[in-house]
Design a protein around this nucleic acid. Structure first.
Length: 217
DNA sequence: TAGGCCATCTGGTCCT
DNA sequence: AGGACCAGATGGCCTA
């Protein structure tokens, strides 16, 4: 984006020290009403974390006079902007949590980081798409999965378990996940149909590498 | 203790 | 004018 400006007005100029000294819990500088007003229509049930020290998670920092305490329109605008930004990031984190929830479950205490979640999701979607493609090649694509294979977004993992064998007319398609580490996991997809091309095991990666260059089964 | 991750503040830019 | 989005900066927490 744009380079940072270095010519802010004196009253708002941000030296490192100034920024540091300005950080303290929003509760101390943001009227409750304003924090609520900053929310959009979908924020009421957003579980806001306890307000913490600015720039950190502890409340043990001192709270010297900061920009937040400035009076005047500019200070109020900045406070409202901070509230909106905080809310925006909370919404972003909620979306990431929702994404984590539909990815194969991780072992306890192995929550994916943000970047790992995005990379894992990308590779997982790709692997599922490959699975469908292979099943299609072997003539084992149930109707309910025979959607447009070029559109991975139309495939939801929940669907694997959502149709009974009788409904689908095929062996049950299922998956089991095992993790070698947070960075690498294998996903075994199989059916009970003996003649099927399954089981197939995909190796997922959460790291930087492109799954399409490294995957195997 | 260093490094990774995270939440938050902040100012700039773009859009409505 | 105000809101959304973005990236830089900063400090706290956690772990190897």
């Amino acid at each position: 984006m744009s380079p940072k400006a270095t010519c802010a007005p004196d009253d708002l100029r941000t030296s490192r020290d100034a920024v540091t000294l300005s950080r303290f819990p929003p509760t101390l500088c943001s009227p409750v009403k304003e924090a609520g007003d900053a929310s959009g229509p979908s924020n009421e049930n957003l579980p806001l974390k306890p307000l913490t020290a600015v720039g950190g998670k502890s409340s043990s920092v001192k709270h010297p006079k900061s920009r937040c305490e400035q009076s005047g329109q500019r200070g109020r605008r900045r406070m409202k902007a901070n509230d909106r930004e905080r809310l925006r990031m909370h919404n972003l984190n909620s979306a990431l949590d929702a994404l984590r929830s539909i990815l194969p479950a991780l072992p306890e205490d192995a929550k994916l980081t943000k970047i790992e979640t995005l990379r894992f999701a990308r590779n997982y979607i790709w692997a599922l798409t490959e699975t469908l493609r292979m099943a299609d090649q072997h003539g084992h694509t149930p109707d309910y999965l025979a959607s447009d294979l070029s559109s991975p977004a139309s495939v939801f993992s929940a669907e694997w378990d959502s149709v009974s064998p009788a409904e689908a007319g095929y062996g049950t398609t299922d998956q089991s996940i095992s993790y070698k580490s947070v960075d690498e996991a294998s996903c075994k997809l199989f059916t009970r149909d003996e003649s099927s091309a399954f089981p197939v095991t995909f190796y997922f990666k959460c790291g930087e590498s492109d799954l399409r260059n490294t995957w195997h089964y």
